[in-house]
C-alpha cells in the first residue's frame, strides 16, 4: 500500500499500462517534457521515450484524429485534453468518428482510444477550465463514459479504460487531484470491480445519494454529517456514466425509497434527469418521494469569485436529502 494523490494514482496506472502493453501510447499538449499541467504524466516521457509519450501541437482535433488512426492499426492511444472546455474542438472526431466507426463498419474496426479529461470546478479557474461536459458524451452511443473519484479508483480505472476495446471518455475530478488515498499498486485491475460497476462508498438505509467524480467526497462528507443527526445516507459512486449500473442503483433505491442525484454539471438535461427517469420507471412502487437533483445552475460556468455559489456543497446536498423526507 502506498499513500498517493489522485494525480499520482493516475500516473502509476498509466505507467503500468505502458509497461504491460507496447501498443499503449500517450499523446497530448505538454504531456511529455512538462508531464502535463496537472503532472498526471510526470516522468513518463523520460522513462518511455518521446515516441510513446508524445508532445503534440495545440490541436485537439488533430490529437484525437491521430489517435483514431493509430487505433485503426491496433494501437491503444491515451489522449490528454488539458481542460474540460478544450475538448469541444475535438467533438467532430469524438462524436462523428470515434463513437460511430465500429457501427458503420459493422465491427470491422475497433477503436480502443482513451480520452482523459480533467473536469469540474473548484480550483479558482474560469469557464473552459471548470466545466462538466460529461453528458454530451454520455448521449453519444458507442462511447463509454466514466469518472474516477479518488487515487485508488483512478489507478485501476485508467488501466481498465485502456484495456477496454470501446472508446472511453475518462473524466478526472481536477479539484481532487491533490487528495490522498491508500493505493495498492501491486494489485492488477482484474481483481477490481469492472469499469461499468457502481460502488457503494458508504452504506445507509434512509436515502440513496448518487454521485460521481468530485462530488463523491462532498457527498461522503454530507453523509457523515447527517449520521450525527441520526440519518443514514447510502452514498453510491456511479463510476460509469455510460453505461449506468442500474442494478446497483435500483437495488439501493428499492431498499431506501428515497434518492438524490448530485453532480456539478447543470441540472437541466443533466445525467440526473436520465437517472431520475429510470428510477421512476424501475422502482416506482418503492419510492416514498420523487427523485431530487442537485447540480449546477443553467448558466455558463461563473467567474471564480462566484463559483462556490454554483458548485453543490454539503448544505445543498443535505437540503435535498431533507426535502425527500417532506413527502
Amino acid at each position: 500500500m502506498s499513500t498517493l494523490t489522485l494525480s499520482r494514482g493516475l500516473n502509476e496506472g498509466l505507467r503500468k499500462a505502458l509497461e504491460d502493453d507496447p501498443k499503449v501510447l500517450i499523446m497530448g499538449e505538454d504531456v511529455g517534457k512538462l508531464g502535463g499541467v496537472f503532472r498526471v504524466t510526470d516522468g513518463l516521457q523520460k522513462d518511455f521515450g518521446e515516441h510513446r509519450v508524445v508532445d503534440t501541437p495545440l490541436a485537439e482535433s488533430g490529437i484525437v484524429g491521430t489517435a483514431i488512426g493509430l487505433a485503426l492499426r491496433g494501437y491503444r492511444p491515451v489522449c490528454e485534453i488539458q481542460f474540460d472546455g478544450f475538448v469541444f474542438p475535438a467533438t467532430d472526431q469524438i462524436v462523428s468518428q470515434l463513437a460511430k466507426m465500429r457501427y458503420r463498419s459493422r465491427g470491422q474496426v475497433s477503436l480502443p482510444v482513451v480520452i482523459r479529461i480533467p473536469f469540474g470546478g473548484g480550483i479558482g479557474a474560469v469557464e473552459h477550465h471548470s466545466e462538466s461536459p460529461e453528458v454530451f458524451f454520455a448521449h453519444t452511443a458507442g462511447l463509454r463514459v466514466v469518472a474516477c473519484a479518488d487515487a485508488a479508483e483512478a489507478f485501476t480505472m485508467i488501466q481498465q479504460a485502456i484495456a477496454s476495446d470501446d472508446p472511453v471518455i475518462f473524466f478526472e475530478p481536477k479539484r481532487r487531484y491533490w487528495d490522498k488515498a491508500e493505493v495498492d499498486t501491486a494489485a492488477g485491475p482484474d481483481s477490481a470491480p469492472p469499469l461499468e460497476a457502481a460502488r457503494v462508498v458508504l452504506p445507509g438505509d434512509d436515502v440513496t445519494l448518487l454521485t460521481y467524480g468530485p462530488l463523491v467526497r462532498t457527498c461522503s462528507e454530507a453523509a457523515l454529517a447527517a449520521r450525527t443527526e441520526g440519518r443514514s445516507i447510502e452514498v453510491i459512486d456511479l463510476r460509469s456514466l455510460s453505461p449506468l449500473d442500474m442494478d446497483t442503483i435500483t437495488g439501493s433505491v428499492s431498499r431506501t425509497g428515497r434518492c438524490v442525484v448530485a453532480h456539478e454539471a447543470p441540472v437541466y438535461a443533466g445525467l440526473g434527469a436520465e437517472i431520475a427517469a429510470r428510477i421512476t420507471e424501475q422502482c416506482f412502487y418503492h419510492l416514498e418521494a420523487p427523485v431530487l437533483r442537485v447540480g449546477g445552475f443553467a448558466t455558463p460556468y461563473p467567474p471564480s469569485r462566484l463559483e462556490e455559489h454554483f458548485l453543490p456543497d454539503l448544505d445543498r446536498v443535505l437540503d435535498a436529502v431533507d426535502r425527500t423526507f417532506a413527502y
Partner: peptide, 13 residues
C-alpha cells in the same frame, strides 16, 4: 475528418 486520422495510420507504420 480523414486528414487527421490518416496521420495516425502513418504514425503506425
Amino acid at each position: 475528418a480523414q486528414l487527421v486520422i490518416a496521420n495516425g495510420s502513418a504514425f503506425s507504420a
